[in-house]
């Protein structure tokens, strides 16, 4: 059966050899994708067979029995039970087979190998946070090793999101209030898309990331870099590190002074040391403390004119990262509106 399905999949019209993109499916980059694609192609061929059968019969009847004169009498056959039972039972058998294939494929999608590498995933509007064992955190990319099962344990901070990696053929909703999980084992190195597939509001279409698959050695190196990079930057140049962390803020906070979902960092920078009016009528001094508090407890001081929309970053940023962000806003005059470092500071 499997051989037959593989044979079907190899047909030139519909597929190219893995791992390149096929006509139907994207590249096969995980251990399960071959199996899923075989099932997909088996169903597709069954569908094509029946579709062609129906359309050929329909076309043939259309031409053959086309009305040429208005007086023709037609056959008065009203039914034929054995024939009708035939086209009830044959599809029934076929769908039972399809159901079984789907079920076995699904079971392998949900059965996590015990030695899986565990990554904690947090979803929030509109971005992902991936935390590796050991504390390395990344947001724009998900770095994983090739040839080792990876398990994602996922939780959402706000609404339902869904993590989808087409090249791995995996998808799972991320639901607030509970953990869900997902596993895969990458079989090819490379870069692959990661999408959010559950509608989650304004930034849904841009809530993506890139999955980067490396060989084991290179992967270890990357994780080390992830852990170390901020330590490598000198204390008085932490604002450069802050610029890099700003990736996680860019969805809502601009650098050019235009108000977004949250106030622009430019505006916050210009108010440094002065008073900012809050939504509840209080005012607050814009300083290191205020910025830090706002990242960790965003609901505490809502700027006038904005809603309580920011998720808390408590536990997601280490102390040095927080400091880097504070320095970035404080020294925003060293960057232009696009966020490029001015020449005198390079």
């Amino acid at each position: 059966m499997t051989m037959l399905m593989n044979l079907l999949y190899q047909t030139p019209f519909l597929a190219t050899a893995a791992p390149r993109r096929g006509f139907w499916m994207p590249e096969q980059a995980s251990t399960v994708s071959g199996e899923i694609d075989s099932i997909f192609m088996a169903i597709t061929w069954i569908s094509i067979f029946f579709f062609v059968l129906i359309v050929i019969l329909m076309g043939y009847f259309m031409v053959k029995y086309r009305r040429v004169e208005n007086h023709k009498t037609t056959s008065s056959v009203t039914h034929n039970t054995p024939l009708e039972l035939t086209w009830t039972i044959i599809p029934l058998i076929i769908v039972i087979v399809i159901f079984y294939m789907g079920m076995t494929g699904y079971i392998s999608l949900r059965s996590v190998p015990v030695d899986a590498y565990e990554i904690d995933v947090t979803a929030q509007k509109w971005g992902w946070t991936f935390e590796h064992p050991g504390g390395a955190i990344e947001t724009e990319t998900l770095t994983i090793p090739k040839g080792r099962p990876v398990r994602l344990t996922m939780a959402s901070q706000d609404v339902i999101h869904s993590l989808f990696i087409p090249a791995f053929r995996v998808k799972q909703d991320v639901v607030p209030g509970r953990y869900t999980y997902l596993w895969f084992e990458a079989s090819e190195t490379g870069r692959y898309d990661l999408f959010c597939t559950e509608y989650c509001g304004t930034g849904h279409a841009t809530m993506g990331a890139v999955v980067e698959v490396y060989e084991e050695d290179e992967f270890k190196q990357k994780i080390d870099e992830l852990l170390r990079w901020i330590e490598d930057i000198e204390d008085d140049r932490l604002f450069v590190a802050g610029k890099r962390l700003y990736n996680r803020c860019v969805q809502c906070h601009s650098l050019d002074g235009s108000p977004g979902i949250g106030p622009s960092f430019r505006e916050t920078h210009e108010l440094w040391g002065e008073q900012r009016r809050l939504a509840d009528g209080r005012t607050v001094t814009v300083d290191e403390n205020y910025v830090k508090e706002s990242i960790i407890y965003p609901a505490q001081d809502i700027t006038e004119g904005y809603g309580n929309l920011m998720p808390s970053f408590r536990g997601q940023l280490r102390e040095r990262e927080l400091r880097a962000l504070v320095q970035f806003i404080r020294h925003l005059d060293r960057f232009d509106d696009e966020g490029n470092l001015l020449e005198e500071w390079q």
Partner: peptide, 17 residues
């Protein structure tokens, strides 16, 4: 098996699961 510290994901103390 895990070789890290505590998860950054807040424990879901409320909710069905």
């Amino acid at each position: 098996p895990r070789f890290g510290e505590v998860s950054s994901v807040a424990p879901a103390a409320v909710g069905p699961a």
